[in-house]
Design a binder for these strands. Structure first.
Lengths: 114, 114
DNA sequence: AGGTACAGGCACTTTAAAGTACCTATTGCA
DNA sequence: TGCAATAGGTACTTTAAAGTGCCTGTACCT
């Protein structure tokens, strides 16, 4: 029995962690293969990527589709429940952009070109 | 020079961490004294509370007002910039509530009465 | 025949996050 | 007189998060 003092803690348990929001932000743009996700996140390790994907899957926000072929092909996408996070993800992304702009001069935050 | 691969990483740097979103969710309801925050978060340690508040202050999202009196009185509130997080915080809180309801039966997530 | 891409698994180590314990100072109250 | 409340600071320890390195198997390309 998981107990929360404030409802937002439940949300943090699902999308908290260093990579989950980033992964979800990529998947919001559409279904992605494992290798595509990996390329979009140059600094994530294979282990962390798999681990975070498994947890997101267990929480029902993403779906894993395995194609029975060789070499392996696996696709990840948001589930319907995952799409309910869209508002949060969108506003987080938008805020991040503004924050970078705001702090570009004094704190030199920059966005690496992809 | 901080570099981000995707803008949302900048947002996570400000509101990431175990306690920051929770603290901000309390402050969105109004100015709070240190002891009030502490009582609202029974499991946070004094050290973590202070640390997170300092970091939020350094990022310009909250303000610290010290009253020169004894015993000490310190109040925390959102800055104007901090209020720009309102949309994010609101949707996070709302999502958390729905997530608890959704998973109450099978995973027994519950909200502790405060 | 050897290398690459693909999607991982597993054991181990490192590092960062968080927690514990103990310290400051002052006033009012029982 | 001694304790509670207030808002911390600091040093040390613990625990959880993340990273490293090495392993699987197969089809395609050179």
């Amino acid at each position: 029995m998981k107990k929360y003092n404030i409802p937002v803690e439940a949300a943090l348990e699902v999308i908290g962690g260093k990579w989950k929001v980033v992964i979800l932000c990529h998947l919001i743009k559409g279904t992605k293969r494992t290798s595509e996700l990996k390329r979009s996140m140059p600094t994530i390790t294979q282990k962390m990527l798999t681990q975070q994907l498994r947890e997101l899957e267990a929480d029902g926000v993403i779906e894993r589709k395995i194609y029975q072929q060789i070499p392996p092909k696996v696709e990840y996408s948001l589930t319907e429940y995952g799409w309910s996070l869209k508002e949060i993800l969108d506003s987080l992304c938008a805020w991040g952009e503004k924050h970078i702009e705001r702090n570009y001069e004094d704190k030199s935050l920059v966005l690496v070109e992809g």
